[in-house]
């Protein structure tokens, strides 16, 4: 067994910080449960008539606030992750690298959880809303939550995870290797769902407003949704990054002989 040469003291910290894991899971959960409460109360009472003053108060103000907060959060979070990047990855101790790999998994857990709320929960919920009421604005309550809250949140999370990986993990070291293509697709594809809202709204004002969910107008969302399948390639890379660190200890020399475990055989 190889001796541990990592810095004493750092080694004391757990490999997986469960508090951060609980925080990542909890913050989205609690926040979105609150959002669901808000929808439950103000959807029916203030969200049906886009020309009513209470709509402006409870929904348009919600929209303006969330956009400001999202831009601020994205700038601060991405800026922080970039500014604090590791400029000397070659000197990284393996133990710390393993710890960072676990932290990276927490980032991906956050991204997956945010994707679930955005693409699954709030997207089908939007269907629930539209089929029940008459569409009377681009900014229906469900859109203010779905398009302009839950999508930006997973986009912010996804890019943050990507910046974290590329600036802190040697496997994803952007200076040596460039950008991971599956990472790029996993993050940029679902991101493109947001600009695709432009097509959606244009179509709905143009072709009027029947709520057929399977209408070809919506296929832009479908196409960009497919891109999240790149999580398959990305997870292979994540596993390879772990294998670099502990492949031998885990499976022995006869199974793991080094090299990039993610690479597909020719």
């Amino acid at each position: 067994m190889a001796a541990t040469t990592s810095v004493v003291g750092v080694a004391e910290a757990p490999l997986l910080d469960k508090r951060w894991l609980a925080f990542a899971f909890g913050i989205y959960t609690v926040f979105y449960l609150w959002v669901r409460w808000y929808e439950g109360v103000y959807g029916w009472s203030a969200g049906l008539d886009a020309f009513a003053p209470e709509f402006e108060k409870y929904w348009m103000n919600f929209l303006y606030t969330e956009i400001v907060l999202e831009v601020t959060t994205a700038s601060l979070l991405w800026g922080y992750l970039w500014r604090t990047r590791d400029r000397n990855l070659d000197a990284l101790a393996p133990r710390e690298e393993l710890r960072r790999n676990m932290t990276h998994l927490i980032w991906l857990v956050a991204y997956a959880w945010a994707i679930y709320w955005g693409a699954s929960y709030f997207t089908e919920q939007d269907g629930t809303w539209h089929q029940t009421i008459v569409r009377d604005t681009d900014f229906t309550p469900s859109h203010i939550i779905e398009f302009y809250l839950s999508y930006p949140i997973y986009i912010i999370t996804g890019y943050a995870a990507m910046i974290y990986a590329h600036t802190r993990l040697p496997y994803f070291d952007y200076r040596k290797k460039g950008l991971s293509l599956p990472y790029l697709i996993t993050v940029v594809g679902p991101f493109m769902i947001l600009p695709n809202v432009g097509l959606n709204e244009w179509g709905h004002t143009f072709w009027f407003m029947e709520e057929l969910f399977v209408a070809p107008l919506h296929y832009g969302f479908v196409f960009f949704g497919w891109f999240a399948l790149s999580i398959l390639g990305l997870l292979l890379q994540v596993f390879a990054s772990f294998a670099n660190l502990m492949g031998r200890e885990l499976c022995g020399e006869s199974v793991y002989r080094g090299g990039d475990a993610a690479t597909w055989p020719e």
Partner: peptide, 28 residues
């Protein structure tokens, strides 16, 4: 560690697939 990766990886795979398969499914 490998087991932790298993569980977290399973969570990640499950929920990313849920999101993207669901958006695909509901619109087709």
């Amino acid at each position: 560690v490998s087991r932790m990766v298993d569980y977290l990886g399973l969570f990640i795979l499950f929920f990313v697939l849920t999101g993207s398969y669901h958006i695909h499914g509901m619109l087709t």
